[in-house]
Protein backbone atom coordinates (compact mmCIF):
# COMPACT_ATOMS: atom_id res chain seq x y z
CA UNK A 1 0.00 0.00 0.00
CA UNK A 2 2.96 2.27 0.70
CA UNK A 3 4.10 1.60 -2.84
CA UNK A 4 0.68 2.51 -4.25
CA UNK A 5 0.61 5.80 -2.34
CA UNK A 6 4.09 6.53 -3.63
CA UNK A 7 3.03 6.00 -7.23
CA UNK A 8 -0.08 8.09 -6.66
CA UNK A 9 2.03 10.98 -5.42
CA UNK A 10 4.48 10.65 -8.27
CA UNK A 11 1.62 10.76 -10.75
CA UNK A 12 0.19 13.86 -9.11
CA UNK A 13 3.58 15.54 -9.21
CA UNK A 14 3.93 14.69 -12.90
CA UNK A 15 0.57 16.25 -13.71
CA UNK A 16 1.42 19.35 -11.71
CA UNK A 17 4.68 19.63 -13.63
CA UNK A 18 2.79 19.33 -16.91
CA UNK A 19 0.50 22.12 -15.78
CA UNK A 20 3.47 24.29 -14.87
CA UNK A 21 5.08 23.64 -18.23
CA UNK A 22 1.87 24.62 -20.03
CA UNK A 23 1.68 27.81 -18.01
CA UNK A 24 5.13 28.78 -19.23
CA UNK A 25 3.55 29.20 -22.66
CA UNK A 26 1.24 31.90 -21.33
CA UNK A 27 4.12 33.44 -19.44
CA UNK A 28 6.23 33.73 -22.59
CA UNK A 29 3.47 34.74 -24.99
CA UNK A 30 1.18 36.83 -22.79
CA UNK A 31 0.25 39.90 -24.78
CA UNK A 32 0.11 42.22 -21.79
CA UNK A 33 2.08 42.62 -18.62
CA UNK A 34 -0.89 41.49 -16.57
CA UNK A 35 -1.13 38.17 -18.37
CA UNK A 36 2.44 37.51 -17.36
CA UNK A 37 1.82 38.49 -13.75
CA UNK A 38 -1.22 36.23 -13.73
CA UNK A 39 0.86 33.38 -15.14
CA UNK A 40 3.58 33.91 -12.53
CA UNK A 41 1.02 33.97 -9.73
CA UNK A 42 -0.65 30.78 -10.94
CA UNK A 43 2.75 29.17 -11.44
CA UNK A 44 3.57 29.99 -7.84
CA UNK A 45 0.38 28.31 -6.61
CA UNK A 46 1.28 25.19 -8.55
CA UNK A 47 4.81 25.33 -7.18
CA UNK A 48 3.41 25.30 -3.65
CA UNK A 49 1.32 22.24 -4.47
CA UNK A 50 4.28 20.55 -6.13
CA UNK A 51 6.49 21.19 -3.11
CA UNK A 52 3.87 19.64 -0.81
CA UNK A 53 3.58 16.52 -2.98
CA UNK A 54 7.34 16.33 -3.42
CA UNK A 55 8.05 16.47 0.30
CA UNK A 56 5.64 13.57 0.82
CA UNK A 57 7.36 11.64 -1.98
CA UNK A 58 10.83 11.97 -0.48
CA UNK A 59 9.40 11.47 3.00
CA UNK A 60 10.82 14.62 4.57
CA UNK A 61 8.87 17.38 6.23
CA UNK A 62 11.20 20.20 5.24
CA UNK A 63 9.54 20.72 1.90
CA UNK A 64 6.27 21.73 3.53
CA UNK A 65 7.96 24.53 5.48
CA UNK A 66 9.42 25.77 2.21
CA UNK A 67 5.95 25.55 0.67
CA UNK A 68 4.50 27.77 3.43
CA UNK A 69 7.22 30.33 2.79
CA UNK A 70 6.63 30.10 -0.94
CA UNK A 71 2.90 30.66 -0.57
CA UNK A 72 3.51 33.85 1.41
CA UNK A 73 6.34 35.07 -0.82
CA UNK A 74 4.26 34.45 -3.94
CA UNK A 75 1.51 36.73 -2.67
CA UNK A 76 3.93 39.45 -1.55
CA UNK A 77 5.85 39.27 -4.82
CA UNK A 78 2.66 39.66 -6.86
CA UNK A 79 1.60 42.73 -4.90
CA UNK A 80 5.12 44.18 -5.04
CA UNK A 81 5.44 43.73 -8.81
CA UNK A 82 2.01 45.27 -9.39
CA UNK A 83 2.81 48.19 -7.16
CA UNK A 84 6.17 48.70 -8.81
CA UNK A 85 4.72 48.80 -12.29
CA UNK A 86 1.97 51.15 -11.15
CA UNK A 87 4.09 53.70 -9.33
CA UNK A 88 7.64 52.90 -10.50
CA UNK A 89 8.53 52.73 -6.83
CA UNK A 90 7.70 50.62 -3.82
CA UNK A 91 7.82 53.41 -1.24
CA UNK A 92 4.32 54.72 -1.93
CA UNK A 93 1.42 54.69 0.44
CA UNK A 94 -1.71 53.19 -1.10
CA UNK A 95 -4.81 55.08 -0.13
CA UNK A 96 -8.36 54.41 -1.16
CA UNK A 97 -8.67 57.08 -3.84
CA UNK A 98 -5.59 55.93 -5.73
CA UNK A 99 -7.42 52.81 -6.86
CA UNK A 100 -9.53 54.86 -9.23
CA UNK A 101 -13.00 56.27 -8.99
CA UNK A 102 -15.80 53.93 -9.91
CA UNK A 103 -18.16 56.78 -10.76
CA UNK A 104 -15.94 57.73 -13.69
CA UNK A 105 -15.89 54.18 -15.03
CA UNK A 106 -18.23 53.45 -17.88
CA UNK A 107 -19.52 49.89 -17.81
CA UNK A 108 -22.14 47.73 -19.41
CA UNK A 109 -23.95 48.75 -22.52
CA UNK A 110 -22.19 52.05 -22.94
CA UNK A 111 -18.86 50.31 -22.97
CA UNK A 112 -20.17 47.61 -25.30
CA UNK A 113 -21.21 50.18 -27.86
CA UNK A 114 -18.11 52.20 -27.20
CA UNK A 115 -16.01 49.20 -28.07
CA UNK A 116 -17.42 49.15 -31.57
CA UNK A 117 -16.10 52.52 -32.55
Amino acid sequence: MEQALHYLNVGTAMFLLIGMALLLGRLLSGPTLYDRILAVNSFGTKTVLFLCVFSLIIGRQDGIDIAILYALMNFIATIAVLKFFRYSALDVSMNYSSRGDLSKTVVGKAEMSGEDT
Binding site: R99, G100, D101, L102, S103, T105, V107
Partner: peptide, 9 residues
Protein backbone atom coordinates in the same frame (compact mmCIF):
# COMPACT_ATOMS: atom_id res chain seq x y z
CA UNK B 1 -12.60 44.44 -10.39
CA UNK B 2 -13.02 47.76 -8.58
CA UNK B 3 -14.68 48.51 -5.27
CA UNK B 4 -16.37 51.87 -5.13
CA UNK B 5 -18.20 53.60 -2.33
CA UNK B 6 -21.53 51.85 -2.77
CA UNK B 7 -21.05 49.37 -5.59
CA UNK B 8 -18.61 46.88 -7.03
CA UNK B 9 -17.61 46.58 -10.67
Amino acid sequence: VVMGESNIL
